[in-house]
Structures are given as C-alpha cells and as structure tokens.
Simulated scan of single mutants.
Amino acid sequence: MTNWPVAQTNSVQRLRALAAGVSGADVTERVLDASVDDVWAVLADFEHGFTLVQPDMRQVRVEARDQETVTLLARSHYGMRARLHGVVRPGYCWLQSRLLLVAMAAAPEPGGGTRVALTGGVRVPGRAAIVPVGVRREALVSLDRLARVLDSSS
C-alpha cells in the first residue's frame, strides 16, 4: 500500500486544525510585511521578544529545551505563574499549562509577507476548552505589538 495520499500543511494550517478541536479557541490571523525568519525570531525568543508581543506575559524563563519540546516558566503582569510545556518547531508553537494555552504559527504568504496566526487563553481544567472571553481582543493586541516590534527592528 504505497499509494496513500499525503497531506501537506503549513504551520498556520496545522494551528487552525488543532485549535478547531479546542472549544472556545479563536484563531486570529494577520499578514505582516516581514519574512518568516524575522517574525519567528521575535515569537520564538521566549525570554525577550515573546514578552514584548504577549500582552499578559511580564516575564518568561526557559526552564528546559530539548529539540522540539520546551518548558517555560511564565509570570503575568497580575502576578500569576504558569509552567508552560509544549512543542516548538520553526514557524510553529503550541504551549499549555494546567490553566493556560498559547499557540502561534507563521508561514510564508503567497504573494509576499508572512501569515501569523495566534490563539490561546485560560484553559478549562480537564477539557479541551478555553474560556473565550477576551481571546480575540488579546490576539489582536499581540499582532499589533508584533508589527511594531518588527517595524522598529528594520
């Protein structure tokens, strides 16, 4: 059986597919006039760039990293703490703690630029669900911040 079809997805499509299985997850996307490498350099720099983009992240420390897995210790502006664990690949990241979900992806956009997709929020313990309040608003703020960071570095 060597004639099985093979599905090819980019990072943004993968994030959309996984988020579709999480009740309350809202994927927010924007095309930015920057390369995937430049966008991902900011988003995957968890201790610096990531904290500039994510509205609620005051401080993030990489606790462990092994190839495609990472564990982060995060502190919010409100003093809450989370140990986020997940997968990080070029252009793709899915992180979860017991009470938090953060996912982001970046892929080249046909015609130029980079499509960035974000989702996340407060998780409902024991379920594939997040509390939908403020998810889209926070993602829009994150995308605005990302665009400003990229503009200031060019």
Rank of each mutant, 00 (worst) to 15 (best):
T119L: 01
S142V: 01
G112Y: 07
A107S: 15
Y92M: 09
W94E: 12
P125D: 09
P125Q: 10
S142A: 15
G126N: 14
A117G: 13
V116R: 02
L101H: 02
A107W: 02
R115L: 07
D144S: 11
M104G: 04
V141R: 14
A106Y: 00
T119K: 03
Y92I: 03
G120H: 06
L99P: 03
A105V: 03
R115N: 08
V135N: 14
T114M: 00
P110E: 11
A139Y: 00
I130P: 04
G91C: 06
W94I: 05
P125A: 05
V135C: 11
C93V: 11
V141L: 12
L118K: 01
P90Q: 13
A129M: 11
L143Q: 02
G112D: 14
T114F: 03
C93L: 10
C93R: 03
T114S: 13
V102S: 11
L118A: 00
G91E: 06
G112L: 08
V135P: 00
G113V: 01
A106W: 05
V133T: 15
L118M: 14
E138I: 01
L95M: 14
R98A: 07
L95T: 00
P125L: 07
G126R: 12
Y92Q: 04
A103S: 13
L100Q: 15
V131E: 12
L143Y: 07
L100A: 13
A107K: 05
G111M: 10
L101M: 15
G91D: 03
A106N: 00
G134I: 09
R127E: 11
G111F: 06
L101I: 13
L140M: 10
V122H: 15
V133L: 14
T114Y: 03
R127L: 09
I130F: 09
M104I: 07
A106D: 06
T119S: 10
S97V: 03
A139V: 02
A103V: 10
L99I: 04
A129N: 11
G113Q: 06
W94M: 08
G112I: 11
R137C: 00
E109M: 06
A129Y: 12
G111E: 03
T119V: 07
G120Y: 09
M104R: 00
G120F: 06
C93I: 07
Y92S: 10
G91F: 00
W94D: 14
G112W: 08
A139W: 01
R136L: 04
V131G: 02
A103N: 01
P132M: 08
D144Q: 12
G113F: 07
V122F: 15
V102T: 10
L143S: 04
L95P: 12
P90M: 06
V116L: 06
T119A: 03
V133M: 12
V116T: 09
